[in-house]
Computed example of a mutant assay.
Amino acid sequence: MKRFFKIASAVLLLASSSIALNAQTNPADESWELAKKQAQKEKKLIFVDLYFTGCMPCAQMDKEVFPDPKVAAVLSKDFVTFKSDILKEEIGKKLCMKYGVTGFPTFLFMNADGKVIDIAGGFQNVEQFTALLQNAKDAAKKGIFKKYSPQINEKEYPDFYVQAYMANKRNVPFDVIDTYLKSKDATDEVSFVIVTGLRVGKQYDDSFLFSSKKFAQDYGRWNVTTHVFGILQRKKKEFEKKNDLKGFQELVNDSKELYTPEEFTKYSGILLKDFGVEKVVTNPYTLQK
């Protein structure tokens, strides 16, 4: 695909230039800065693809969507594109940390100053992805951006969170997270990405659901809907114990406006399926021959 910056690969290709820079001479952070500088120079937006080798929907995007003429034309005209393998490249890990990314692929839509227009993820077909690009262009023209600060500053985050993303030390004791969150505003950016990025559950579920619509407006639907779905899966067990299908349906419906109609049909179907049906797990080692 044209004009994808491949960080820490053999070369870094600058789309509108014939210059090829050896990535080994350009640290990952410098390569990211080059992408932003190009976007500023060409007055374009930035599209970031966060992926990892072996991710099936990531590979499907590479094969079926990015090369499509309609998609390629929009990206070529209006975006500087930037691609990073989050398991191999430091800048990918930093971007995941910054935005509390947990699923892949994740797509970031930004302006040249690093202000986030939107975040999306998962496999998107050509029509869906083209719509995302158009929506990003429209929002940028209107000056509508998310609340994320434009720069990546590791000092803004507690050490346990930095280590979770940069060193893959994700088994953080809940009391450590809880102590930090209780000392901060629950609605600020760092608190939000800690809760969603580390998938903090149960004790923070109700407050997150209460603020979910505001979070979606401030930080984008992708991280919010992903986390809400996890919360509702946990809540399902509580409602099953009370045999309260009606109550659970009402809770699920409360989150409806967070999702597109297609998404809500899919996820509500998953959540409501087999409500109260005992899940029987057979141990294969106990089966008689």
Score class of each variant (00 low, 15 high):
288 Q>R: 13
73 A>P: 03
141 K>Q: 14
157 Y>W: 05
260 T>F: 07
132 L>D: 11
90 E>Q: 12
232 L>G: 01
272 L>D: 10
49 D>S: 09
202 K>T: 12
155 K>A: 15
100 G>L: 06
80 V>W: 06
103 G>D: 14
251 L>F: 07
111 N>I: 02
14 L>E: 14
101 V>A: 11
253 N>P: 04
242 K>N: 12
286 T>H: 10
87 L>T: 15
63 K>I: 08
134 Q>L: 11
29 D>M: 10
202 K>W: 10
216 A>K: 04
200 V>Y: 09
130 T>I: 10
157 Y>Q: 02
217 Q>P: 02
93 K>Q: 15
77 K>G: 08
93 K>A: 14
113 D>I: 00
242 K>T: 09
169 K>R: 09
255 S>Y: 00
197 G>R: 02
150 P>E: 04
241 K>Y: 06
109 F>M: 08
58 C>M: 08
99 Y>L: 13
96 C>M: 14
288 Q>E: 15
35 A>Y: 01
38 Q>H: 08
70 K>L: 13
208 F>Y: 02
14 L>P: 01
187 T>V: 06
146 K>P: 00
211 S>R: 12
95 L>E: 08
128 Q>D: 13
215 F>Y: 14
45 L>M: 10
29 D>N: 13
110 M>I: 00
54 G>Y: 11
147 K>P: 01
91 I>F: 01
163 Q>S: 13
41 K>Y: 14
133 L>E: 05
203 Q>S: 14
111 N>R: 09
221 R>D: 15
231 I>H: 04
133 L>H: 05
248 F>P: 05
228 V>Y: 00
57 P>Y: 09
154 E>S: 08
204 Y>W: 15
2 K>T: 13
85 D>H: 07
107 F>W: 07
153 N>W: 06
71 V>Y: 05
289 K>P: 09
53 T>P: 01
274 D>E: 13
5 F>R: 10
192 F>Q: 05
115 K>W: 03
198 L>F: 09
16 S>R: 13
161 Y>N: 00
222 W>N: 13
191 S>R: 01
29 D>C: 05
133 L>D: 07
103 G>C: 12
90 E>D: 14
81 T>R: 00
254 D>W: 03
255 S>K: 00
109 F>T: 03
194 I>T: 08
129 F>D: 04
223 N>K: 11
268 S>Y: 02
